[in-house]
Simulated assay, not measured.
Amino acid sequence: MSAPDPDANTSDSLQGFSKEGLAQLTTQFHKLVDDGKLANIVILVARHGQVVHRDAYGLQNISAAVPVPVKPTTIYRIASMLKPFIGAAMMLLWEEGLWKLDDPVSKFIPSFAALKVKVEKEDGTFELVDQESPMLMKQLMSHTAGFRGRTEYDGVGLRDGDLQHIIDVLSTLPLAFQPGKKWVYGPSVDIQGYIIEKLTGHPLDDFLSSRLFTPLGMVDTGFVLPDSKVERLVNTHQDDGTGKLVSIPLEGTYNRTRPKFIGGGKAILSTVDDYFRFSQMLLNGGEFEGKRYLKPSTIELMRTSVLEPGVCVKIGEHTLPGLGFGMDVSIVQSQAEKMGFQKVGSYFWMGLYGTWFWVDPANDVVVVGFVNELDWWKRLPGAKEICAREVYKALKV
């Protein structure tokens, strides 16, 4: 498979997509930018390993005196889309026999064995009870380990230090529910980052770079942005309160030097082409450009739900029984309400600032879309759904 050319919009062959359908995808998102609902958007669509659509539209900084258009090489904050990287890194170590899905997490973090569970009684008071069964690694990988939602830790300084600090804080707090019995989007992937460091003896960013980013040719993905690349970094945008988008100053939204906190949950930079390379490796069953990273059976395990019966993924205010969850990716198991147009068997995730990707094995498709806006889901809750709808309308054979 050939590597993507960032200066080309599509490959010579549309691989079963119609030219008119892909043009409609472009029209839909250009209109959102022209109408002021988005500052910019970069979208990449690939099939059978070939990029068939690559579109960049809008401005890097909508408030700048001298406008700079976004390009396919524009660097975005992808936040929680770091999580599938962590999942792949964990599976590298799983293949090496360093952990098993049914291992108790306390095997690697002994203090977690003593964690109590906070349970509400009939009279409205709370009591602390023992774990009914030990927290397992597969639960840690699938947000069912028992931890609170991420924002519920805002007052305890969870990220005031390094990954060891997170473990120290969590070791003093009760779990919010019995392991395995509920899906809550919390600090599980930061904990995975800690385990990666303990199992390998290397800082998390070094391990990701040496085992994934550098070998895959992901030249613009990382936690630190050098001065030579700052001009390619998109601004984050937000509503100024009147419905108008304005940019947020770059200072404080990226790092020229290694940040104090590097975890598994968010705060990493990338481009659509870099994310395509990673996603295509997953779609290829763990191989990319002649190099094998993971076994096909390992990729199958990553995209197989480990949720217990009756446990549902909840995104925002929506409980989604049509979704499963595997190793740091969510899986479309049925075309349930609120699932948009992604096909059954696709696996995906999203980022806080408006980035998304999905891998569709049945149709041999990868899609990556990048936006950087605060509260984009309130202004434009259906961006990923619009993308999926138009992608599959354009797919003819």
Score class of each variant (00 low, 15 high):
50 Q>S: 14
332 V>S: 08
160 D>C: 02
55 D>Q: 13
273 D>M: 05
79 A>E: 08
267 A>I: 02
160 D>E: 10
123 D>M: 09
283 L>H: 12
180 G>T: 12
241 G>E: 04
15 Q>A: 11
141 M>L: 11
351 G>S: 11
62 I>R: 09
183 W>K: 11
80 S>T: 14
122 E>D: 13
344 V>A: 03
162 D>T: 10
365 V>W: 01
219 V>C: 00
245 L>V: 02
369 G>K: 08
292 R>G: 10
12 D>F: 08
210 S>R: 06
23 A>H: 03
131 Q>K: 05
213 F>V: 11
381 P>K: 08
310 G>L: 05
165 H>W: 03
360 D>Q: 07
187 P>T: 01
369 G>M: 06
83 K>V: 06
173 L>Y: 03
31 K>M: 02
11 S>V: 05
121 K>V: 01
264 G>L: 08
180 G>K: 07
381 P>H: 03
396 K>S: 10
16 G>E: 04
162 D>R: 14
174 P>N: 01
135 M>C: 04
322 G>W: 00
112 F>E: 04
58 G>S: 03
207 F>Y: 15
28 Q>T: 10
264 G>S: 09
42 V>W: 03
131 Q>A: 07
131 Q>P: 12
345 G>C: 12
225 L>C: 12
258 R>A: 08
318 H>C: 01
75 I>Q: 06
189 V>S: 14
73 T>H: 07
132 E>C: 02
189 V>M: 09
309 P>H: 13
194 Y>E: 13
206 D>C: 01
37 K>F: 01
19 K>A: 06
37 K>Y: 07
286 G>P: 08
249 P>D: 11
